[in-house]
Design a protein around this nucleic acid. Structure first.
Lengths: 238, 238
DNA sequence: GAATCGGGGCCGGCAATGCCGACCACCGGC
DNA sequence: GCCGGTGGTCGGCATTGCCGGCCCCGATTC
């Protein structure tokens, strides 16, 4: 891989810096965080601002992410095959289960939510990152996708958990926090039967579980949804 | 304004190109569209790809927008004051009217949707661009925000329409297409009473209108919502 | 099957590019 | 008033990245 363009790498680093943690940073903060000279950082920020990728608070002079990023991120979603096919299926899934439905794809060291049908009153979470080991969507991708699993492994017994997920055909995650939240997720494959993403639902454990674990009806709905999307992806490719 | 960084401008142009119109372009297409040498375009694309801002289809070799943009776009939303305050108010608005609620801010030559509460079964439209002259959200911003109105004016009588909007205190848009769609929007101001965005609802005209125009209850709900958000922004700033 | 054409990708030399560090204007606090 | 801090600017140097040409490969076509 021949050399990358330095100024672009640095600009991307600035955007990532503004996206994580503190979302409003001053020029000096940016420069020192990335080990750049103040003048260099200023030139990058000035250009990013003129392109709309970064905005500057008029009062404080601090920098934050720009609106153009939202437009570009939406452009990514519009071109996303999996998400396009998933729209109608996840709608049915959310209606059938009464819970929030999610679609996610692997991204870096986690999974990225590319579609979310929230329950009424909940905020949308499309674009959020979920952990590989702490979510049903992440686990199901870990279980089936070799490149995703290449990430640093979780605790002992995690491989066994993945094997169990493969045997069941779906992943489960139970979060005791806040009265108990349960998640179920299943794999989505493309036309060549390669793993490309995951779909699932998340909701209060008291609605989704009984003494024997997650309700069979919910699991079946998630699996039907995954099969439906996978089928659409296969047919679309022919 | 001292010079901008050339490579960054070009990289941003590539991203904009991939976001608009054709969403999958070959290297040669990108190079010729922007008037760049093939080698130059390749270097930019290679770096954008390594940063995750652009992805390359393994089979065709064509380029498309990358998942990192969705993550960054979400980061923009997370830092957005107006959107954060609007979340709970628009939720009430959608429930009270039974229609889809929108929040938008001015961006370039249009308005950008930063929050959308869709009706059940509708896809989310957060991140979409709406026209200044062909939407209620755009018109209300035109009517009150001087920098937004500086855009090329619409047809004759448009100024009168804006004056009427200011007199009424809200904007209306009726689209005959598809059986008739009606929209109502009102202005949101920040703590210094400057226009910062707009909030509104859109739905079938047969539900939202009677012989006298848009139902008074819907208009009142939109205006209450706009006042509520504006109040929150003022209080938060104190 | 061979020749052609177009695709993406790589490389070396030149100079334009953008990086750096010093410097300026401004603000708020001590 | 001084001082430490901010964001912003400018000029000179050399690093940087741009360019045009070349290669490889796969699809198409005769």
């Amino acid at each position: 891989m021949p050399g990358s363009i330095q100024s672009l790498e640095r600009a991307a680093a600035i955007l990532r810096l503004l996206a994580g943690g503190e979302r409003r940073l001053g020029l000096s903060d940016v420069a020192s965080s990335l080990g750049l000279a103040k003048g260099t950082a200023h030139g990058l920020l000035r250009t990013l601002r003129s392109e709309g990728l970064v905005e500057q608070d008029a009062a404080s002079g601090k920098y934050q992410l720009g609106a153009e990023l939202l437009r570009l991120g939406t452009g990514y979603l519009d071109g996303h095959q999996l998400r396009a096919r998933a729209l109608r299926w996840t709608d049915d899934l959310a209606r059938a289960t009464g819970e929030a439905a999610y679609v996610a794809v692997p991204h870096r060291d986690g999974v990225l939510v590319v579609h979310h049908v929230p329950r009424p009153g909940e905020p949308p979470r499309t674009g959020a990152m979920l952990p590989l080991h702490g979510s049903a969507l992440g686990r199901v991708l870990c279980a089936y996708d070799p490149v995703t699993r290449a990430e640093p492994a979780g605790g002992p017994g995690f491989e066994a958990e993945l094997a169990a997920t493969r045997a069941r055909g779906f992943a489960v995650d139970l979060e005791p926090a806040g009265g108990g939240t349960a998640s179920v997720a299943a794999l989505v494959r493309d036309g060549r039967r390669m793993p490309v993403g995951a779909v699932g639902v998340t909701g209060a454990a008291e609605r989704m579980c009984d003494a024997g674990g997650v309700l069979a009806g919910v699991v079946a709905a998630v699996q039907d949804c995954a099969r439906g999307i996978s089928g659409d992806l296969g047919a679309g490719r022919a």
